[in-house]
């Protein structure tokens, strides 16, 4: 292999890894938008909560109480982050979003997501302080080499987790009664109600799935973030860009856009320097908004989820 080719493949591999991290976060955003027609500004904080839940599960519980090896503790922490995200989503929907939706107002639930975001950030700030936590994944230390291409075991874990999440989500939507009902609610909430489907239950389920994905995303992102109570915010900006580039509410578009942004980011680091990442991503976003405002995959909204 020539040096150039090696470099291209190496950066593409790095890009896919980054892209998978973003996809884990962006999928939830797009899912909530697709079903509720609402932007969730608190999504970033579900990522942060997931990251901290994973950190404490791995360091305080997995290794110390259960006596697991570091790798086992990290895998366990991913499960804990999934659970923490799901539970938090369930609780916040029941306490805040559902009662506001009941009143039939569209703006208030949206503003409430900002309120929930501020609340979660400050609660974590009070509990954990502003100093960044160190969260190492044991899989980051293990390097795998194929020919002249290098990657860590962590990146394999991330890609596998993202692939599993995507396959599980598609299988759920396509083959289960509840998944089909969820698509029905996304397409026409009132008519879904006329079918005997309780739309509120499916909306709750959507929020739980999205939050669980964000939680796992947090566990996977923890080792690469500067882990403070505001850590999620650094990823969410990019996740929003991905969701818009992919077409709001469109799962397939979000996945493609996530991988695309990851790869573009890897090459930006290589050729332009890491300081320009956000610039490049947001120039891409602006170009998309001008050239193709419906997103990569332009379908009618109801066909997305």
């Amino acid at each position: 292999m020539t040096d150039l080719l090696t470099l291209l493949v190496q950066q593409s591999v790095n890009g896919v890894y980054l892209g998978c991290l973003y996809v884990m976060v962006a999928l939830g955003l797009t899912l909530i938008y697709g079903v509720l027609n609402q932007i969730n500004f608190a999504h970033a904080d579900f990522v942060t909560v997931g990251a901290f839940a994973a950190l404490f599960t791995a360091t305080r519980f997995g290794t110390k109480v259960l006596g697991l090896p570091d790798t086992g503790a990290y895998l366990l922490s991913m499960v804990a982050a999934l659970g923490a995200g799901a539970l938090l989503g369930l609780a916040i929907n029941a306490a805040v979003f559902a009662p506001l939706r009941e009143r039939g107002d569209e703006l208030r639930p949206l503003i409430a997501t900002i309120g929930v975001s501020v609340l979660l950030e400050n609660f974590q700030l009070w509990l954990l302080g502003p100093i960044p936590y160190q969260f190492d994944s044991p899989f980051s230390l293990e390097t795998i080499r194929i020919g002249r291409i290098f990657f860590t075991a962590q990146s394999v874990l991330v890609v596998v987790a993202a692939a599993l999440a995507i396959v599980a989500l598609y299988a759920f939507m396509k083959f289960t009664f509840l998944g089909k009902a969820l698509r029905a609610v996304a397409q026409d909430r009132e008519t879904a109600g006329l079918m005997g489907i309780n739309p509120n239950l499916l909306i709750a389920l959507t929020i739980v799935i999205a939050s669980a994905l964000a939680g796992v995303g947090g566990a996977l992102l923890g080792p690469v973030l500067v882990l403070t109570p505001f850590a999620g915010a650094t990823v969410i900006v990019k996740a929003f860009a991905i969701v818009i580039i992919g077409g709001f509410g469109n799962m397939q578009g979000t996945i493609i856009a996530g991988l695309l942004v990851g790869v573009i980011e890897a090459f930006t680091v290589q050729y332009l320097g890491s300081g320009l990442i956000d610039l490049v991503v947001f120039v891409l976003l602006l170009v998309m908004l001008v050239v193709r405002p419906t997103g990569l995959i332009a379908e009618r909204k109801e066909e997305n989820v």
């Binding site: 008519t191 879904a192 109801e302």
Partner: peptide
């Protein structure tokens, strides 16, 4: 059966 049929178009 609602007015305008309201089938789920993508299902």
């Amino acid at each position: 059966v609602p007015e305008g049929r309201r089938v789920f178009p993508a299902l």
